[in-house]
Design a protein around this nucleic acid. Structure first.
Length: 222
DNA sequence: CGGTTTTGACCTGCGC
DNA sequence: GCGCAGGTCAAAACCG
């Protein structure tokens, strides 16, 4: 796919999956060159890996009622959420097992624009907004809270979690969207080095807005 | 009793 | 160099 005006690559990586893909979105502010390294180019330029593992699974193994706004990509510098490009098309992804009728699989992860200071290759980060009344979403992993911090320009505190599994250094930050408290902003950093729950997400497209959202998810089992 | 949460202190990077 | 903001540490409290 191509996105006119795309400049900044948004790199994301599925949790637990040994894959890494890149996407291109228009920059929230200003432009940018598309001169990017081989592993960090816009989506259309390379063969995409076809496997991913999931960020969320409900405790009961069912479909969560939260709605992930998969196209609301986030940056960590407080940038505003941009409009979805009209030419945006869902990336090609593998057909999931048992897809719900009318749903298409998508990556729930939205691109995380790495801050220049986060240029380290090991810094695999994803961030997304989730419409949820729950502060902490059950993603199937066990987390231990290690910090809480109020953030400038936001009335809501940011919570810091680490994966409780020994030897796993994955972290996540969770905070309420400052613009809409109905949404929870979650950012994962790192990749789990242990077994993860297998879940496939299905997305549907809102015909009114053209936006995709996660319509459901399915556990792949052990 | 062991694991988790809370919370103030400390550390580090960045901008001025 | 200084102040600010974000991220982490660690001791105490809490909980099952």
């Amino acid at each position: 796919m191509t996105v006119p005006g795309a400049g900044t690559a948004y790199r994301y990586r599925a949790h637990g999956a040994d894959v890494c893909r890149s996407m291109a979105f228009p920059t929230p502010r200003g432009g940018g060159s598309s001169s990017l390294p081989e592993n960090n180019r816009p989506y259309s330029s390379g063969a995409a890996s076809r496997s991913f593992s999931p960020a969320f699974v409900s405790a009961a193994g069912g479909v969560l009622q939260q709605q992930l706004d998969v196209l609301d990509y986030l940056s960590d510098d407080g940038g505003a959420l941009p409009a979805v490009p009209e030419t945006f098309q869902a990336p090609p992804l593998p057909l999931p097992r048992m897809p719900p009728v009318g749903a298409a699989p998508v990556m729930p992860d939205v691109g995380y624009r790495a801050h220049p200071r986060d240029a380290a290759p090991a810094g695999d980060k994803i961030a997304f907004r989730t419409r949820s009344a729950e502060e902490v979403l059950d993603d199937g992993y066990k987390w231990r809270k290690y910090g809480k911090k109020s953030v400038k320009n936001s009335p809501n505190p940011r919570n810091y979690y680490r994966c409780s599994t020994e030897g796993c250094s994955v972290k996540k930050r969770v905070e309420r969207d400052k613009d809409d408290v109905n949404y929870v902003v979650t950012m994962y950093e790192g990749v789990h080095n242990h077994a993860s729950p297998g879940t496939v997400y299905y997305a549907s497209q809102d015909p009114a807005t053209g936006r995709f959202f996660v319509a459901g998810m399915h556990s792949l089992g052990p």
